[in-house]
Amino acid sequence: MKNISIEELKDIAIEMRKTAITMIHKAQSGHPGGSLSAADLMTALYFKEMNIDPNNPTWEDRDRFVLSKGHVCPIQYSALALKGYVPYDTIYTLREYGSPFQGHPDMKKCPGIDISTGSLGQGLSCGVGMAIAGKRDKKDYRVFSLVGDGECQEGQIWEAAQTAVKYQLDNLVVFVDNNRLQIDGFCDEIMPLQDLEKKFEAFGFETKRINGHSMAEIIETLDEIRVAQNGKPKCVVLDTVKGKGVSYMEDVADWHGVAPNDEEYKQAIAEIVGGLK
């Protein structure tokens, strides 16, 4: 955990959003909507909460991060670049031949990626495995995993959840990016998820639901979780807006996996810089 103010984190979140959108614009390919909804949490994790060392990405005592919704990797790559895991200017090779920044996270190619993901529903199980290893090895690292709300339609998420409770993984924190949208439209129309907080609670998680774009609420929640070593895995449902920070992307399902053109890109950057402060 690092000492850093909420104001400083908000400034970094702007850089995170700018970087992610620039990557996607240059690549003319990628997933902006979910990258933007996850930006504030990712900022808090990488720049305050997680015990990590960019100079030693495979340090065995590090906190782990599992991006179960792997398609929003531009926001994770932004964090890795801004933290110094990789030279900042190299990340504009997103999705290019030979790039460490594959369309979905590849642990073999990119330093700082703890597990390759990209097929929805699978990452949380890997996080459970890491957390069990931490418990058995009596290490105090923690495992943070980000899943999408739409992703919770995958049954394997719940297989992983029940395992986390059985093995009392209070070193595991699941964040649900509850942006209410998936590729084909609103989750409530495609396949209603009901109350995800209550669902995780019913599985035996300690849960909380917060505004996923309030840096103050995120930090307060992370502070609470850090001290709650009570044998229960944690789940935080983050109410978020898909495309948060770019007006024309907000709450529009079509911006799930489309890159902005030059004009849209200029507007996006202007709004990110001006609007979120």
Binding site: E60, R64, V66, M107, D114, I115, G121, Q122, G123, L124, S125, C126, G127, V128, G129, M130, A131, I132, A133, G134, D137, G155, Q156, E159, A160, T163
Partner: peptide, 13 residues
């Protein structure tokens, strides 16, 4: 399915 993913997570450690 969970078993296979969990194994992968264990293997990373």
């Amino acid at each position: 399915q969970n078993a296979a993913g969990l194994a992968a997570g264990l293997a990373t450690t």
